[in-house]
Design a protein around this nucleic acid. Structure first.
Lengths: 166, 166
DNA sequence: CACATTAGCGCAATAATCTTCCCATACTAA
DNA sequence: TTAGTATGGGAAGATTATTGCGCTAATGTG
């Protein structure tokens, strides 16, 4: 069940729902060229198999009063698995931290943070992040402006790739 | 119209739709404590006013064959506005680049890239990014594993803040 | 080759939801 | 008081979601 491969219609469904997650099933069915019932069955299957992890409204952070977005590069003193996991768990508990990725290279983690203003980020930084055990270094970069923010994956790259080696 | 302030129900709606963008309007109305018609009117208004920019299915990149995620720090030779814009426009044209943010500090931009495998990212890096005029330096970091990937903004932070200074 | 078996589609019918219309209820301001 | 404005909710028709069922094609098996 987990290893079920996707056919072109499944990939079209995923691409459409990635770009508009609230599309009605009849509209989706029309676009991918099948009728509504099998289309809905495919969507349910994609959800159950984990190809679709969820649906989210994309809200405007600035309009909502979140003026500040920051990337934080974090280096730990110990990279033992237990210490890595402990830091990840900390991140999951911080609402300001929206994303946490472990990296290769000098830096251990990159964090994407969203805050109402600079001072509230500063207090998080000095009061939470920098005081966390095992955190050795933090470099922060403020986002000046966003140039692109597309969700998920580039399906067109996938299609191009499959056309070459089907 | 643009400056309409949000009341607690609007914020609840946004929080619910951020966490489940495909919730039915009936369910949403139940959760925020009003009936379906006014709830739908509020959602439409939030969409029109730009508080909701869209809805997206959250797809599993790895399951779909996108094994590689990379953060690229880009420094430009010239930071003149025209050159910054030119680079941003380039990024919008690259499907592998999912996000592009202008930063303060040493680095000019951070890019989040998603690719099927390392070699396809490498060919993008050497064939596209590094050959782009005005690109002076690129440092890339491979994502080893993802620890947290929450969408959008932390509404609980907003509520806490509003409770303090309504 | 004949015949199960399986997988997937689509039609039709029912259930649920969406959407519109209209009226009721505050709250505001002259 | 009396408009005027904003927001909520009931009712009803339109649209969608969902289920059940039969059909066809592809596959496999004796």
């Amino acid at each position: 069940m987990a290893g079920t491969r996707l056919d072109p219609i499944d990939r079209m469904i995923l691409a459409e729902l990635q770009s508009d997650g609230r599309m009605t099933n009849v509209e989706l069915a029309k676009r991918v060229g099948i009728s509504a019932p099998p289309c809905l069955r495919r969507v349910r299957t994609l959800e159950e198999q984990g190809y679709i992890k969820g649906y989210h409204a994309d809200v405007d952070a600035r309009e909502l009063g979140f003026e500040v977005q920051v990337f934080a590069m974090v280096g730990l003193a110990s990279q033992a698995e237990a210490d890595l996991s402990a830091f990840e768990e900390k991140c999951r508990g911080w609402p300001l931290v929206r994303e946490c990725h472990m990296l290769n290279g000098e830096v251990d983690f990159i964090l994407k943070c969203v805050a109402p203003d600079l001072s509230s980020f500063q207090s998080f930084l000095t009061g939470e992040l920098l005081t966390t055990p095992n955190v050795a270094s933090v470099k922060t970069s403020l986002v000046i402006r966003g140039a692109k923010d597309d969700p998920g994956v580039p399906f067109d790259v996938l299609e191009a790739r499959l056309a070459t080696a089907p």
